[in-house]
Computed example of a mutant assay.
Amino acid sequence: MTRLDASDLATHLGREAEAVCRHYLGAGRRQGNYWLVGDARNTPGRSMFVRLKETAKGPAGKWTDAQSGEHGDLLDVIRESCGLTDFADVVKEARTFLSLPRPEPAPATKKRPGTPAPSGSAEAARRLVSMSQPISGTLVETYLRTRGITALHGTGNLRFHPRCYYRPDDHGPTETWPAMIAAVTDLRGTITGAHRTWLAPDGSDKAPIDTPRKAMGDLLGHAVRFGIAGEVMAAGEGIETILSARQAIPHMAMAAALSAAHLAAIQFPETLHRLYIVRDNDPAGDGARDSLVERANAAGIEAIVLSPVLEDFNEDLRRLGIDALRANLRVQLAPQDVARFWLQTA
């Protein structure tokens, strides 16, 4: 990447300065035209300030740490907050962020400040996602690692909420638990829903509640997306199933539809030529597989089914290990995709 390319990327990030700060510097807060935080590594505090709008003093996205004297742009924020050392990884993360969903603009009809969004609505989902923080260094990372999932690149649609509301039923008392929040998006990247996985306080497992997973918003046809789909992508039901498959094929775009019924109805990107269906070994998974194969073929898209050895790919990962998972998936890929995706991981 040339300096001009990097400069252009920093300029694009500057146009989204507040969104960048909320995503990577979630320990801070906005004050006037600046975002205040402890430092570029997202430490709580107020010594670092990021300019959110272009002024006579300089462009949006420039920042200064009054305590250390450090200064830079939003590419530096991404590098420091994510702990990246290779500039190519910084560029990749920045481009991934710029492809992430943004909450839709507020409707023209004004609401009184503090007016709650309708429970379970797409608007409520967008608010929940916006109130959450990146997963780096949080209980979400801890939880996923207990599930054998360590490849967390391109997971900007996963967020962490330290005190997410949980109500056992319509009449029970409201509880709060830490939660993994997953943004559900349409093909344009607009947030249409959210999926919550409530976690144990130490992140060692799901929370000990009756229903530790719930979705909200408009889900039909949409998904939790990892990577940018081109001619090839994979789609499956669960987030952990998809993240497990990404352990073996980390450079392929994938999407979690959250249920068998929603997988069968997932929307296809216009660029898609080949779809890998990451199935679960159960009757619902078989039904979703058959429906999706039929829909894909009718749209002129080649459909290839990826099957686990055990119940699902996360169980394969945890019980059989990463080498067995890779071996099983490799033989199921089209030969051209072995060269396209697999050899990048070798």
Rank of each mutant, 00 (worst) to 15 (best):
D73V: 08
I228H: 14
A265E: 14
R196T: 08
G72V: 00
R46Q: 14
L144A: 06
R246V: 05
S307F: 00
E270L: 10
P201Y: 05
L243D: 13
E240L: 06
D8E: 15
D65L: 10
G58V: 09
P116G: 00
H171P: 00
H222V: 03
L128A: 12
I242K: 02
K53F: 08
W35Y: 05
R15W: 14
A298K: 12
T96E: 13
H273T: 13
H161W: 08
G172W: 01
A215T: 14
H222K: 08
A125K: 04
P113S: 00
L272N: 10
P178L: 07
L292Y: 03
R225P: 07
A194Q: 06
R318L: 09
M1S: 10
R95D: 09
E294P: 00
Q332M: 04
M48Q: 10
R30H: 03
V309G: 00
Y165P: 14
P335M: 06
A106Q: 11
H12R: 15
L219T: 02
K53L: 12
A284F: 03
I78G: 04
T241V: 06
V90G: 06
G154R: 13
L258A: 09
H195N: 07
P208T: 04
W198P: 02
A265S: 08
D218K: 14
A19C: 09
S259G: 03
P162S: 11
L139W: 04
V331F: 04
A40G: 03
A234I: 07
A346F: 15
L13P: 01
Y276I: 09
M252C: 09
T142N: 13
D186V: 04
L292D: 03
G137R: 04
D286R: 15
Q344S: 13
T176V: 12
P118N: 00
Y24A: 02
L4C: 07
V293L: 01
T185R: 10
P269Q: 11
G45K: 05
D316I: 05
M48D: 02
I228C: 11
D89C: 07
A253N: 12
L263C: 11
W342M: 12
H23Q: 14
G45N: 06
V140T: 09
R159K: 13
V224C: 07
T109H: 01
D76A: 13
A229V: 02
G14H: 06
L144K: 03
V77S: 07
T55Q: 11
E18W: 05
P335R: 10
G137V: 06
A125P: 13
L9M: 02
L243V: 05
A200C: 04
G69N: 04
T174C: 14
W177T: 02
H161F: 08
L220T: 12
P269S: 10
D337K: 06
A106R: 07
A284C: 06
M1I: 08
M216P: 11
G61W: 10
G189I: 08
P212T: 01
T142P: 03
W63K: 13
L199F: 10
L317Q: 07
L100G: 07
N33A: 15
D282G: 05
L152A: 09
H153A: 15
R159H: 13
H262P: 01
A255M: 11
A299S: 13
E104V: 02
L333E: 04
L219F: 08
L158F: 01
N281D: 13
T271N: 05
Y34I: 02
L343W: 12
L306P: 07
N297F: 00
D86E: 15
W177H: 12
P178G: 13
E54I: 05
H12I: 08
S130M: 15
F226K: 07
